[in-house]
Nucleic acid binder design. Structure first.
Lengths: 265, 265
DNA sequence: CAGTGGTCTAGACCACGAC
DNA sequence: TCGTGGTCTAGACCACTGT
């Protein structure tokens, strides 16, 4: 007897049907879906089954759920490019600031900037061990700072920094302090910092990041991490940034600007 | 009266408690959690509430659920570096092949390679319009090919290619054909291809990608996209790759190798 | 076969947003 | 106030895995 193929779950078949209606234009971009009780009645399934289907499409960024209002088809994502010149050795925090969109211009922009949210003790957590390994140090030799970058009145980037715990001004690590952590760290150490390497990955938001970024846990985050070093090659900083994947992407240009149809906007 | 703060949902408080136990070592890495009925009894909540908590931690890559077996604490992720020289103009598909881990060496490796899964018609879908815009063409002028790269017996990378629909050998687009799509396309066109730009982003897997990659919809995927052009600067290829975020990351080296404690392995 | 997680139902109550 | 989505319960049945 051949291997029995398990039937596709009801909620996934339902998700597929909804996706088909979206693709076909039955539910156009921006429009509201029938309410959960309505879908439940139309397809003859329990409301929880409807919710399971809708939840999948929401995590896939196909639908947007507004509590108390309805569930809507997401219009094509307007994603924000953050240019990073691959040949440059310069930090790009400035381009992050200029690259991300402003919310509604003025009022909440007063809160924009990078803010220290925690000075976590470096106790052999997985992340701390990773950082120590990247910097070629023992975990006890490191200090760690976590920050949030707010832009347009919303938290956009969560960052963790690990540095050798040498002459770190306590002022730098005061929770709530605004500034530019990389520049401040370099200035405090009295050195210039260069990229050693940077890596890109993706991961679902954990509980802590989700709370800091104001997104549901499991939301796809773009992770950018790497080591910076002093001009003589000594590793001096390990940084790990998490950015809501739906609101930003990093762009590397390999040809001189103006060459072709670029990715910006 | 001050604004009433909504109580944190039960399932999220439960998720936090489980996370705390993991951090504290009560549930060490690799260990099995109590079963759902056990957790349900211990915390005095419904099993569905337990499942909601566990599901969040699974999406955050904290837990790994093995059906019929149990739920386990994920050991620190062994992530695979895929080196991309930022100064190089060379394609990196080879480094993808050599960079990704082999499953259990021999048997299923016979299936490794890049395989055409679909030759989708280019009909003004959002993705098609995006590609057309990137290439400075009308959608009708483009051809599209979708492939899956299998390594170690598992699908690892889903790619979509858009090219001007000039002299495309039908042989190239035959579903199931193995090969190296970028090299084959370049050879077919009789030109060398260079990077124009590449971008990194993150997104939850949609239904189609989830099925091709064998992951649940909503899983965090690393997206790498960009345009390649001929030496004279004519855009000739738009490519968009999706990779399970938990199994790969891209690394950019800015200094000569051997300089510091690198990210590889 | 026993134990695990996966799916689905029925019903209840609540918080939120718009009117 | 009403309709929306969010949470939680109780219970049932099933599919998968290891023994």
């Amino acid at each position: 007897m051949a291997t029995h193929r398990t039937e596709t779950p009801l909620y996934r078949r339902l998700a597929r049907q909804l996706q088909e209606r979206i693709d076909a234009g039955t539910y156009p971009a921006g429009s509201r879906l029938p309410s959960e009780p309505e879908l439940s009645a139309e397809f003859g399934v329990n409301r929880l089954t409807v919710r399971q289907a809708v939840a999948e499409l929401e995590r896939a960024a196909v639908l947007e759920i507004r509590r108390g209002v309805g569930t809507f088809v997401r219009p094509p994502a307007v994603r924000v490019s953050i240019a990073v010149d691959p040949r440059s050795q310069r930090f790009d925090l400035g381009s992050v600031h200029t690259g991300l969109p402003l919310g509604t211009d003025a009022p909440e922009a007063a809160q924009d900037g990078e803010f220290v949210v925690a000075v976590a003790p470096v106790a052999g957590s997985t992340e701390d061990d990773e950082a120590a390994h990247r910097l070629g140090r023992a975990p006890e030799e490191l200090s760690r700072v976590d920050t949030v970058i707010r832009l347009g009145g919303r938290p956009r980037v969560v960052s963790s920094y690990w540095v050798p715990s040498g002459p770190l001004p306590a002022e730098l690590l005061r929770p709530g302090r605004p500034g530019n952590m990389v520049l401040d760290l370099a200035r405090a150490a009295g050195v210039e910092l260069e990229y050693d390497w940077r890596a890109f990955g993706a991961v679902g938001a954990d509980l802590a990041d989700a709370e800091l970024l104001g997104v549901p846990p499991g939301t796809a985050l773009l992770v950018r991490e790497g080591v910076s070093c002093t001009p003589d090659g000594t590793p001096a900083l390990y940084v790990r940034r998490r950015i809501d994947g739906s609101s930003a992407r990093f762009v590397l240009h390999y040809r001189e600007p103006g060459g072709g149809s670029g990715p910006v906007r």
